[in-house]
Simulated scan of single mutants.
Amino acid sequence: MSKQVEQEFKTLLPATTAEQLLTQITFQPPFTQTNRYFDTVNHQLKVHHFGLRTREFADHAEQTLKVPAGPNRKLIEYTDAIKGADLVAGGAVEAQLSQAGIALADLQLIGQATTTRYLAPQPAGLLTLDHTTYANGHDDWELEMEYTDIAVAQAFWQQLATDFAINLLPPENKIQRAIDNVNKSQG
């Protein structure tokens, strides 16, 4: 079990801008993850502004609950190691859901996506470029900057936007994008 504070900037990018970033910034070798997103029938996680997902990597899996903790997309993430893609009882995620009056048994799959992730540590924070493909075949590119010092990160983020002509608009979160791109046979 882990608990961490996450602060980040995010924006969606056209594929051409993502390709420029990949050629002009040194990213670590990419890896792929499959995300599955959950909520209750009556959308209790959305009501609480929570996000719940499982992630499957090549060699491990985890479940993460994101809980709002302040302005500027500040979140607390509760993460438990799991085996496979199904939610697991008994960890920090279930404890936090229980405090909010949400039972693990009431959760259902609402969307999924596969992401190829590129990471580039920077002095200002961790720069992440995600290429995500959704259940219906739609895909998008998202640029993210996780940081601890907002002033340093904001200066870097703004310079990056200027250098690559990026229109910085906060995107819908990946959970909502996955829901919006559910394959008709899943819905």
Score class of each variant (00 low, 15 high):
residue 145 M to N: 06
residue 129 L to M: 05
residue 2 S to C: 02
residue 54 T to E: 11
residue 14 P to L: 07
residue 100 A to M: 10
residue 169 L to K: 07
residue 8 E to Y: 13
residue 128 T to W: 00
residue 19 E to S: 05
residue 173 N to W: 00
residue 85 A to P: 02
residue 66 K to M: 13
residue 83 K to Q: 09
residue 106 D to K: 11
residue 97 L to R: 10
residue 30 P to L: 11
residue 70 G to I: 12
residue 7 Q to W: 15
residue 61 A to H: 06
residue 41 V to K: 11
residue 36 R to P: 07
residue 105 A to S: 15
residue 83 K to S: 06
residue 48 H to G: 01
residue 66 K to Y: 00
residue 49 H to F: 13
residue 15 A to F: 01
residue 33 Q to P: 04
residue 138 H to W: 00
residue 174 K to N: 09
residue 12 L to D: 06
residue 8 E to S: 10
residue 126 L to P: 11
residue 43 H to Y: 14
residue 164 F to M: 04
residue 145 M to G: 10
residue 138 H to A: 15
residue 6 E to R: 08
residue 187 G to L: 14
residue 152 V to L: 02
residue 18 A to W: 01
residue 173 N to S: 05
residue 153 A to M: 05
residue 44 Q to V: 07
residue 181 N to M: 01
residue 132 T to R: 09
residue 111 G to F: 15
residue 135 A to D: 12
residue 136 N to T: 00
residue 62 E to R: 09
residue 132 T to E: 11
residue 26 T to P: 09
residue 20 Q to Y: 15
residue 42 N to R: 14
residue 30 P to M: 09
residue 155 A to P: 03
residue 176 Q to L: 13
residue 70 G to K: 13
residue 176 Q to C: 06
residue 105 A to F: 06
residue 127 L to H: 04
residue 158 Q to G: 02
residue 153 A to E: 04
residue 152 V to K: 01
residue 123 P to G: 04
residue 146 E to G: 15
residue 96 Q to K: 12
residue 9 F to R: 02
residue 80 D to G: 03
residue 106 D to Q: 14
residue 69 A to F: 15
residue 21 L to M: 08
residue 101 G to R: 10
residue 109 L to E: 06
residue 100 A to P: 09
residue 102 I to N: 09
residue 150 I to R: 07
residue 47 V to E: 13
residue 54 T to Y: 03
residue 176 Q to M: 05
residue 27 F to N: 14
residue 167 N to I: 12
residue 71 P to K: 14
residue 30 P to H: 07
residue 50 F to R: 04
residue 62 E to G: 02
residue 92 A to F: 01
residue 81 A to R: 09
residue 40 T to Q: 04
residue 79 T to K: 11
residue 143 L to R: 01
residue 82 I to P: 12
residue 35 N to V: 15
residue 95 A to S: 14
residue 125 G to E: 11
residue 4 Q to D: 10
residue 94 E to Q: 14
residue 53 R to T: 06
residue 123 P to L: 06
residue 77 E to A: 11
residue 9 F to V: 09
residue 184 K to D: 03
residue 74 K to N: 08
residue 140 D to W: 00
residue 22 L to C: 07
residue 107 L to Q: 12
residue 60 H to M: 08
residue 127 L to D: 09
residue 159 Q to N: 08
residue 161 A to L: 09
residue 170 P to T: 01
residue 39 D to R: 11
residue 140 D to L: 05
residue 107 L to R: 08
residue 99 Q to L: 10
residue 91 G to Q: 03
residue 141 W to P: 10
residue 116 T to H: 02
